[in-house]
């Protein structure tokens, strides 16, 4: 019964294979360095994957809608620098600044979404340009030398623990439940899949497509801001090392490994194991001392392998049907 469901439901199959893959990687890594499998280290891994996981949720939504968001990396950087500089270690400033940054994220993402929806500028170009603008804004604001530091409150969110469990992991779990619920049950989220599969048909079915595109890009930017806040809380200071292009690529990789396609096929939930796999592999490579180089190469290889596996599933049947039908 369960097996049959897994066989027939693509998204379930993706999820199960991702979980198996995580177990496999952990198993192999555990054989090399048993220390890796200690509960403490596993929790640390979960904590590390939180910022990427949050951003990947946003990126997945954009990808499922048929677009791509190349600006998330810069938005994370921007959040970190602004948060540190504006809060300057004071608790009473934290909440206003967080609200301000969230509003700024919505504004940035919303602007990208608005122009994409209204003018038809390709999402890749729009968000790349936006990324350039945000980075320029950052540099102008900080003069290239970021300052300030996070407040205790922000530090609690980013680095604090409740018992053995990091606060950021708890935040992530709550956030993930909200987002998954939103994209399953609420029309603004659920329609995302339809936009990606056939934008025109969605329009003709009465979906307010333009508003939805604005929402999706605003959502992605908001997620990037949240992820930047968690980063800031963990690192404690502003730095240009946070976020950036590599982080953006990681978010795309997480979304794709999570089984999400530009055709609206997939599930936003896939971003979570996707992000965990990326974090896990990076962590293993770092412990092997081949951090940067290895990460790049492994990431590319995994993307290609996973995509080949996924297309083997849907791609083949699609091709076959095309030939038979008509």
């Amino acid at each position: 019964m369960l097996l049959e469901r897994i066989r027939n439901d693509r998204n379930l199959k993706v999820m199960v294979s991702l979980l198996l893959m995580i177990i496999l990687i952990l198993g192999i890594a555990g054989m090399i360095t048993p220390r890796l499998l200690q509960p403490g280290h596993l929790i640390e891994l979960a904590r590390q994957s939180v910022p990427l996981g949050i951003t990947a949720l946003g990126q997945s939504a954009v990808i499922l809608s048929g677009g791509i968001d190349l600006s998330v990396g810069s938005i994370v950087t921007m959040t970190n620098i602004l948060a540190a500089d504006m809060i300057r270690g004071r608790d009473n400033r934290t909440i206003p600044v967080v609200l301000f940054l969230l509003a700024l994220g919505i504004l940035i993402g919303g602007t990208s979404g608005f122009l994409i929806a209204k003018t038809g500028i390709p999402p890749m170009v729009m968000t790349f340009a936006m990324s350039s603008i945000v980075r320029g804004g950052d540099l102008l604001y900080s003069g290239g030398a970021p300052g300030g530091r996070a407040s205790p409150m922000l530090r609690f969110f980013g680095a604090g623990r409740v018992g053995p469990v990091p606060v950021s992991v708890i935040i992530f779990i709550i956030l993930a439940i909200l987002v998954l619920f939103w994209f399953k049950k609420v029309r603004t989220g659920r329609s995302t899949y339809f936009l990606g599969n056939n934008f025109r048909a969605a329009k003709y079915a009465g979906v307010p497509v333009e508003r939805r595109i604005v929402f999706i890009y605003a959502f992605s930017a908001t997620m990037a801001v949240l992820s930047g806040l968690i980063f800031s809380g963990y690192i404690g200071v502003g730095s240009f090392e946070v976020g950036g292009e590599a982080f953006m690529l990681n978010s795309v990789a997480s979304a794709v490994i999570g089984g999400n396609t530009f055709l609206g096929i997939g599930n936003i939930a896939g971003a979570i194991p996707g992000a965990f796999i990326i974090t896990l592999i990076n962590s293993i490579l770092r412990s092997l001392g081949i951090a940067v180089t290895g990460q790049h190469i492994m990431q590319g290889v995994i993307i290609i392998v996973m995509v080949v596996l996924y297309t083997g599933q849907i791609g083949f049947s699609r091709k076959k049907l095309k030939k038979a039908g008509g």
Binding site: R190, F194, N197, A201, A202, A205, G206, V207, I314
Partner: peptide
């Protein structure tokens, strides 16, 4: 091109508009 989401189920194709409404 204007009507259907070919990769999705009948259920998804039919329910969409009602959901929006």
């Amino acid at each position: 091109s204007k009507g259907l989401f070919l990769d999705f189920s009948i259920l998804a194709n039919v329910s969409l508009t009602r959901m929006e409404k």
